[in-house]
Structures are given as C-alpha cells and as structure tokens.
Amino acid sequence: MGSSNGKKAVMAVTGAVMVLFLVLHMLGNLKIFFGRDSFNDYAHALRTLLEPLAPYRTVLTIVEIVLVASVVLHMWAAISLARRAGKARPVKYVAKKSQASGYTTHIMRFGGLTIALFVVWHLLDLTFGVVNPKGFDAAPADRMVAGFDPSRWWVTLIYVVAVVMVGLHLRHGVWSAFQTLGWVGRTRTRTLRLGAGLLSGVLVVGFLAPPLAITFGVVQ
C-alpha cells in the first residue's frame, strides 16, 4: 500500500465505495418527489434496517464508518501522491501547454478540496441541522424543504456548484479507477469513458433535481 501504485489502488477502491454510496443517496433523495411522507418513511427505514435482528441504526452506523474510512483513506492517498508529484518536479516549466483533451483531469485536486469543504457544510445542514432553519429535531423532509427555501437561494447555489464539481470529479475519477485497477482493455477504454460520463451526468441531474425543485416551488 506504500508504493505509488498501491496508493492509486486505495484511491480507486475507496472512490468506488463513495460512488456506490452516491448512487443510493441520489435514489433516496428522489423520494421527495413522492411526497414528504415517502421521504420520511425512507429515512426511518434506513435506521430500522435489519431490525429486530440488529439494534436500531446498526446498518446506517456501519455505512457511516465505511464512508468515513473511505474519505480518510482517499484523502490520505491523494495528499501523499500530490506531495510525491510535487517533489518529482522541483523546477517548473517557463512554458507548459497541455496536450491531452479534457480539463477535468487537471482539476481533480482542486475539485476534491471543494467537495470536502462542501461535505462539511452539507453534514452541518442536513445531518446535524446546525445551519438548517428547522434544526436537528425536525422531520428529514421538513429540514430538506426548509433548507432549500427560495429565501435561501444561496444555499441552493452552493449545492449546484458542489454537485457539478462532483460530476466533473467523477467524469475522470470513475474511468480512472478502472484504469488504475487494470480493468481497461484496449477496446473497452472508450466504453468506460462514455460510461463514466453518463454516470456523472445522471448523478448531477439526480442530485440537483430535489433542491432545484424545492427552490423553484415545484415540491412544497
């Protein structure tokens, strides 16, 4: 795990865990379009999953632990690889022109930092309710609808910027994970790149639909 290739594999695997979580998270969010009760029931179901086999919130806690571990490892590997890269080029070029297409590859580190900051805000807003008008004790759907109220348009704006950044991050990240784990054949590269773009697009649309619908009054 200490080699550069080992760290890349850590990034790929932890990234895959987070992408899988994002897909489920997005599907859960869309429940808001079926009404507040549907959304609240879903939130409750997440906490009572496997009951009475396991105590309240067992599955959710395990998911949270895996996610925190993934985020920490992903960031550790990224920082360590970025430092290695910095040391590998101590003297910068006077002129340097990118030849590869796709600027998403060049904003991965900046994008990762933006997403990390957003996650902090997002948890304070909708998980802990600290910066949410309804607070921690309100029902999940009430927190969500109040959080994206038209009067709080700037919150929606933060989400739009962050989610687009997630999309750009995954546009390169998803394909890159396959390449890092060596699962790319000569013929599959194109398909994988297209697939990564498609998945990123679906996630961006799926994640932005609820906040935009609430801010523009479609969901009340």
Partner: peptide, 17 residues
C-alpha cells in the same frame, strides 16, 4: 514499479498527457 518509485518519479493520475 518499485524501482520507478525509488527513483523519485511521481504517481500516475491518468491525465493522458
């Protein structure tokens, strides 16, 4: 790969440059 690391080269981020 271990020798490549030992020489001080950076890691690949699949930029395609």
């Amino acid at each position: 790969v271990d020798q490549m690391d030992a020489e001080g080269f950076g890691g690949c981020t699949n930029t395609g440059e």
